[in-house]
Design a protein around this nucleic acid. Structure first.
Lengths: 242, 242
DNA sequence: GATCATAGTCGTCTGCCTGACGATAAACAG
DNA sequence: CTGTTTATCGTCAGGCAGACGACTATGATC
């Protein structure tokens, strides 16, 4: 607050609560999965929801998202984990208790050990997004979180096309085959291994060979790569028609 | 509010003001322009800013954006005018008076007569985005609006590549040349008229011929088109390298 | 009216990228 | 040793984009 400057008249605007919700995506055993937490209190008590929480008075939005992410998963945004703002949801009736505006964020993370439950006694799990979005009624996500999750998944799908973000789903070192399985899981399609290999190794800045090789899936050992500096792919990866 | 359900404890979270800000873009005389309004009160009194205002207690975010748009310009979202959510800005210090979270929206509109000033005595104008973003110091936009405008412009630029939104910058009926000048103004490049014509007329669903012809620029009369039903372009328009 | 300038529209050609798919390489399981 | 699995290299045809020539139809100028 700047001295000598009149603050807003508090009666001139309605008060809002502002939260962040997280769509945390990863690829586990060939399926795109999202992090869900079980709600411990009403409304929607006992139902699954996206992790999230209130934005504090002194933190910015991405800071709040990073804090929630670490509280819920132990993940730290930045090193290999991608965090970006997704969209903001502010329907007056989205929370039955009061007016809440939620700034949803999208997190892409490598497959990691079990999630850890948050500070309160809620449990958390990775669930295939297909399952979370399919459920009607009982199994459905709380609030408008199904919509938020769907938007996040769609964002992730399109971002794989023209950005190098698929590497955020991979460990620091990975093979071309592992990267291909990321694309296949997120897009839900099968890709030709030979064309995929030609494409990703031919795109400058996408992959950097580390020199090592490994055999993680049986078969011939594969070269190991790290993510290159490129963030946008030109030309883009092409998602096969449905 | 649902009867019998306890409301949030108001002391459990900090109160926020939520606003919408608008990045209204149009193409005027070969330049990408944005709508700017002059601030009538502190802070930043007398400086140019993006139009916007508080979200009311009973309206959703896109409703608030549509209302502000109509108040400031008389434009109604929907018929030819495109409105979409852009991003949300919530740095704790972005407004010196109090904690304000702003949900920015992007509007693409055809070139229209002079903007009309809002309800209060502020004046409004269309200004080339290059000018609004170039200015340091005195001519710069208020708050973090230069950042918001830059994000909106970047969104518009990339959306022209893979969506049919360029038609939102055109009147209901337009020629291929006018559409090309939209791309040239937004991207800041020159495009080959022959290849452009082949590309846009060959993309199914992008353009629908109306049968009429017109001469608006001198030279041979051009066919008139309306926007087709397509919303995404596949394959996309390619922005030439810089 | 002839000529020029301006815009629009249609073709051609060449290079590059993609999708389909054959072939080889290097591991493991039996 | 043989079959299976995965990785990697090559080949080939079709399609699209960029470069650019050619022709058409208007208004402007002399």
């Amino acid at each position: 607050m700047i001295a000598g400057m009149a603050p807003y008249d508090p009666s001139a605007f309605p008060p809002f609560a502002v939260t962040v919700d997280l769509v945390v995506l990863t690829v586990r055993s060939h399926a795109l999965c999202a992090l869900a937490v079980r709600r411990g209190e009403p409304p929607y008590q006992g139902r699954w929801a996206l992790p999230g929480g209130f934005v504090r008075g002194d933190e910015d939005l991405s800071g709040a998202a990073a804090r929630e992410l670490e509280e819920e998963t132990g993940l730290r945004a930045g090193s290999g984990v991608h965090l970006e703002q997704l969209a903001t949801y502010g329907d007056p009736k989205r929370d039955p208790r009061m007016r809440v505006v939620s700034v949803a964020h999208l997190v892409l993370a490598p497959d990691l050990p079990a999630p850890r439950a948050g500070g309160d006694a809620r449990s958390a799990r990775w669930a295939p997004v297909e399952e979370l979005l399919r459920n009607g009624e009982e199994g459905a996500l709380a609030f408008d979180h199904a919509r938020i999750l769907a938007d996040g998944v769609e964002r992730a799908r399109s971002k794989l096309e023209y950005s190098a973000l698929a590497t955020a789903f991979c460990p620091p070192e990975f093979t071309v085959g592992e990267l291909r399985r990321v694309y296949e899981a997120v897009w839900g399609v099968a890709l030709d291994p030979r064309n995929f290999h030609r494409k990703v190794t031919g795109t400058v800045g996408f992959l950097v060979p580390t020199g090592g090789t490994t055999t993680r899936q049986g078969g011939r050992p594969a070269q190991l790569f790290r993510a290159g500096g490129a963030t946008i792919l030109n030309p883009p990866m092409l998602r096969p028609e449905v």
